[in-house]
Amino acid sequence: MIPAKFDYVKPASVADAVRALREGGDDAKIIAGGQSLLPVLRLRLAAPSLVIDLGGIPELRGIREDGDRIAIGAMTSYYDILRDDLVTQHVALLAQATETVADNQVRHRGTLGGSLAHADPAGDLGAPALALDAEMVIAGETGTRTVPAAEFFVDYFTTAIGEGEILTEIRFPKYTGWGSHYEKFNRTAQAWSMCAVAAAVRVEGGTIAEARVGLTNMGTTPIRAAGVEQALIGQPASAEAIRTAADRATEGTAAPSDADAAADYREHLARVLTGRAVLAAAG
């Protein structure tokens, strides 16, 4: 319950944070909302020598419209995302997934950037970010670069954020007028997703014109259900057609096996939940 000792800095700018990260070396750890880091520190599953708190950098917080994008600062809390009209209007799927994350208290502290950088494959925000083709803005010593979500999630707890780099902003294309739904399945309200499906569709005259589907906890990273997306396009937004397309949900997945769900069950869930998510999105 008591973390091991560490030093602590609270830089006032991204540049200072990057500098602190470089000086801190391998054992430095960034704390954003801290809702994933602190439990790990309390159980001493990690013991960084330096913790760099991004809480003192105001420009990392906030949601703005940036042309055809909605740009969300990495330190924006789940709570603020849920209350934001721009998100609700243009990136509703993100809000729907965010609403299912943990509990109220955690949503007050936890941040979008923290969650994506942590890259837990069971985390709920990777799938919508991936499905919606978000872009990650990453700051380093030499400036910033932008990484598409498809290249951002590399492996179990591993992202494209390099050493000495910090995720500063997440940009979402606008999905104004799309239908969307996040279908989450867990053992208890507090458990993370055994499997969850993020779906957004654009329906034109009863036919699915475009579809975006992402899967949570079906591999070592969030997974784009590209096969399902393809199968949906041009299909009527009917239960039967959607269920048929959803059968392709497990293509490209590598479902983990754990106590709540062995791989075969998880794969079955992925198909069922994909059907439900898309149907709800199309509804």
């Binding site: 319950m1 602590y8 704390i31 801290g34 809702q35 602190l38 439990p39 309390r42 159980l43 913790v51 708190d53 709570y79 943990a102 509990d103 109220n104 208290q105 955690v106 007050h108 502290r109 507090q190």
Partner: peptide, 23 residues
């Protein structure tokens, strides 16, 4: 010690937080 129980909930700057999950 895993942020599950919420017994430590307080308000920080007007919002509920688990005070075990805040330094």
């Amino acid at each position: 010690d895993t942020s599950n129980c919420g017994a430590c909930t307080v308000h920080l700057n007007g919002q509920s937080v688990k005070s075990c999950s805040v330094l």
